[in-house]
Design a protein around this nucleic acid. Sequence first.
DNA 1: ATTCCCTCCTGCGCGC
DNA 2: TGCGCGCAGGAGGGAA
Length: 277
Amino acid sequence: MPELPEVEVCRLGIEPELVGQLIHTVVIRTPRLRQPIPPELVPLLTGARILAVRRRAKYLLLDCAGPGGEGSVLIHLGMSGNLRFVPPGQPIEKHDHVDLVLSTQILRLADPRRFGLVLWQPGPPALSLQHPVLASLGVEPLSAAFTVDCLRQAFSRRHGPVKPVLMDGKLVVGIGNIYASESLFRAGISPLRPASGISRPRCELLVAAVRETLSDAIAAGGSSIRDYVHSDGGAGCFQVQAAVYERAGEPCRRCTGQVRQIRQAGRSTYYCPSCQH
DNA sequence: ATTCCCTCCTGCGCGC
DNA sequence: TGCGCGCAGGAGGGAA
């Protein structure tokens, strides 16, 4: 489900509830996610305190310190994961896989498709970025490091269509299938255009478009597409504003044309052929 | 090195 | 009503 904005909205929602809290117990009901949940998580986290809640790409990082030492919990929500606070005694539902039991509430991870991850990186918070799943990730699109030069460098050796390239986390993180289409629409760039051939002025447009699209989505509370829910249970509302995503055949919001749906690298792409070149 | 295809898994909407 | 099919926010691995 979640791309960068949804993960960031989730982080913003859970951070004030989690920081400073003591973890009473951890319950792993379903260890089999995309990778097995490391069983040592239970003894390591029992009695530990949560010091910070950070985000890197689409991963949430819970920095913890306790009797078993310090380390960070890495959580990825995959396609269908969500984190919610529930009161003690809340009945377990079918896809509730992990509980972080705090003093007055439980942080519960549910993930029907089980494409998510819960991992552990021992050591101080700075070391968490060296975990194998994080070590070779690209630049954060909302950081100062995401510049036109950075994007041009990344595009220079990529001769395939720009849309799948934009989704490659080795270059830029956090841009998934929705926001790739939306950002390209905002920049007026065709998803079919070869990445390496995009001019500097167009790269400038794209950097700005990615930043704006992601920030707007965060401000709007994340996407409400399909089963996305906030940690407090409220739905996001970005879909209302989606310019092209899942709007095949509908009128473009900017011109009189129709939104078209194509397939790229196995994923649906939406764009307006008359606005995007 | 880059690019595409497949896979992991469940649920949903659609056509028949 | 029910069944089969295709598709769905991700991302890593392997083949070409």
